[in-house]
Nucleic acid binder design. Structure first.
Lengths: 262, 262
DNA sequence: GCCATGGCTATGTCCGGACAAGCGAACTAC
DNA sequence: GTAGTTCGCTTGTCCGGACATAGCCATGGC
């Protein structure tokens, strides 16, 4: 009702409030749109851009930064894709209003545990080659009975077993040494070997523990286990891994963020 | 070898092979980039664009269609985002080489069953309001003890129970009639009420069935169940639903596609 | 036979402009 | 007072161009 601004006033980007300190470095090899996107994302995460806050229109933002509108749009678009912001024609772009975390990424149990502050330990139970069963052959796209690599690991945290990990790999794709497998995760080893992971198809379910699984995981036979099967592809579409994992239900759950595709 | 084309030859978009029939309708209100993206996606799905096939460079494609390069790029970008294609600088854009399906969407069990050809049946066990427990209040962002809407449903397929669905909603958000709840899914009712779903935070785990769950689901007490908890947000960031679902482990699993965010 | 180099190609980034369309608020007519 | 209309705002779409840069091949020197 102040009479001067009838339209929604951007809370931060310009206006009477303290403007956001945004700037780009044209000598940097980092793309301009990426620099801007990073700064905006940091502002959202640190609360300097409050949920619901309007970003201010793209034209002003562009001229303020000495950029063109397409570049600013490209920056904002990456944040919209991440679910951090919403655009509304005729209204503006605003910070999404909820405790949104990251969308689900192709995650590794090792990394998950490490970021959670737990120090994961890995025991390699098997690291050999064996003839592919029908299921494994179909997943890896090789002939049934041909030799494939098998890695079986028991992962623990805080001294308690958490998961039993069985992974099948095409032969000769990555050399896997036991000491490396015990020191880090499989995905890191694959990336270090020059493989660019691209996508994965996962199935998550549940079932009762077998006697062998119960022994390894320190559970009772028949106890509920969380299961995950995953086929991972690299950027050329090759299958690089087929994993069958079981997790102790009391100690692990999958948590992730979904976005509605407009 | 042939002496005329030293560079990788696009298999379909131009060259000696039959070119893809692509065209855009400038009188249509559908955006041009979207028309092109749809046609390319259809060509991939029908196999007219084989996996690994190069798309041909963007400049030619643009001039052939009478479009500008940014528009063509925008079309291709949507397919790259979906994981159907991969760009390589200096090489070109090629169709991804695997049986990639859709990425995980904010899915409804009802829709999942329906598309799988099973005819889901729903029995509404409860449809009332009740005071929010601490857990529900935290999820919905309301005061503990305040009245919230509760819907409890048993979903079956082929005459067998599949899942027990408990959903809490903010009061007064959507009017829910029992006959509607038994005829369709909750998400459809919410969309029909003008709510634009935006994102959800899910946790998937497993546990043993309680006595009551076992009775409803026709399982033994202690049988493994797949559990899913979900908080759903609309595009303004409001929480619109908190769901606690349990599925019979033998009859249901979550299956989804993950993409690595570059 | 091997390696360095240069040139070609295709995507990556960026610009400045233009018009269309959805949205909301204020205004006007009843 | 209420309903319809107008108007200004903002994003959505599209264009044509420009230069940078990564990848690959062929050439030429060793």
């Amino acid at each position: 009702m102040s009479g001067q601004a009838n339209y929604a006033r951007p809370v931060t980007a310009h206006g009477t409030d303290r403007p956001l300190p945004l700037s780009v470095d044209r000598t940097s090899p980092v793309p301009l749109y990426f620099q801007l996107a990073q700064q905006l994302e940091a502002a959202v995460e640190q609360g300097r851009l409050a949920p619901g806050a309007l970003l201010g229109n793209e034209i002003d933002l562009a001229s303020r930064l000495g950029l063109s509108r397409p570049t600013v749009r490209q920056a904002i678009q990456t944040l919209v894709d991440k679910g951090l912001m919403v655009r509304r024609r005729g209204v503006g772009t605003q910070v999404v209003h909820s405790q949104v975390r990251r969308p689900l990424e192709l995650s590794s149990l090792y990394d998950d545990l490490e970021t959670a502050g737990q120090r994961p330990a890995t025991a390699v139970l098997r690291n050999t080659t064996e003839p592919a069963t029908a299921e494994v052959a179909a997943a890896l796209g090789v002939a049934e009975g041909s030799e494939v690599h098998l890695v079986e690991r028991l992962r623990s945290a805080h001294g308690e077993p958490m998961a039993l990990l069985r992974n099948h790999l095409p032969p000769g794709l990555v050399p896997l040494r036991i000491d490396e497998l015990e020191a880090t995760g499989l995905y890191r080893l694959m990336r270090a070997a020059g493989i660019t992971l691209h996508s994965a198809r996962q199935t998550v379910g549940a079932r009762a523990a077998t006697v062998g699984e119960a022994r390894d995981l320190d559970e009772e036979p028949g106890a509920p286990l969380l299961t995950m099967e995953r086929v991972t592809y690299d950027d050329t579409g090759r299958v690089v891994e087929f994993g069958s994992h079981v997790y102790r239900a009391a100690r692990y759950a999958f948590e992730f963020q979904l976005l509605v595709r407009p």
